[in-house]
Amino acid sequence: MRSSLLRRLFPGWLLGMFTAALLAGVFGALLLSGLIFDTSASSQHSKTFAWAIHLTMIHSVRERAGRQERPDAARHASLLNGAAAYARDCVACHGGPGAARAPWVSAMLPTPPYLLDSSSRWSRAELYRLVHDGVKMSGMPAWGEIEPDQTISDIVSFVQQMPKLSPTEFARLRQQARPATPDSPTAIGAQEPSTFSSASSPS
């Protein structure tokens, strides 16, 4: 009885699978031919697609934000070294308090966000993962490939503190960070206590 039912359903199932495979093939061909997907950055993603890839990115980061950051790196993270690294590597694309991004950044798609509430969106481990490993196809580099882990920790610490900075304080930090070339990194670290006590005062 059961086997006769299976035998009766099998041809339909086979036809269904064949149709699905055919449709998948056609869709794949259309996709690869460039006919149904516009890779130009001047055209917006559809809302559904933008929602889907953004959600995928968030879940991927959450899933993989592990324990890569050495605890002592977090403990010794220097806000001022972080500020210098942020001014060098991050501010062009992400801006800061009262500081706009570089003009060409609004022409990127997806466009890099401002980070003032990133510490309420992401945990420290997630931020570390984001900065260290970047985000595929978004323009966010894997900074861990070219910066020491300590610098990544410093950047994360600075990003977490950034919302507490007024535009004036941020501008001053950027100014101080400017001479921070690889041969004089201590020039900034030396001023740390005094500068940051004023930076953390409410404004």
């Binding site: 801006g95 308090p97 009262g98 500081a99 706009a100 991004r101 003009p103 609004s106 401002y114 003032l116 007024s166 535009p167 004036t168 404004s203």
Partner: peptide, 9 residues
């Protein structure tokens, strides 16, 4: 004055 909102140009 002192606005955190940037001038995006």
């Amino acid at each position: 004055a002192g606005n955190v909102m940037p001038n995006e140009g």
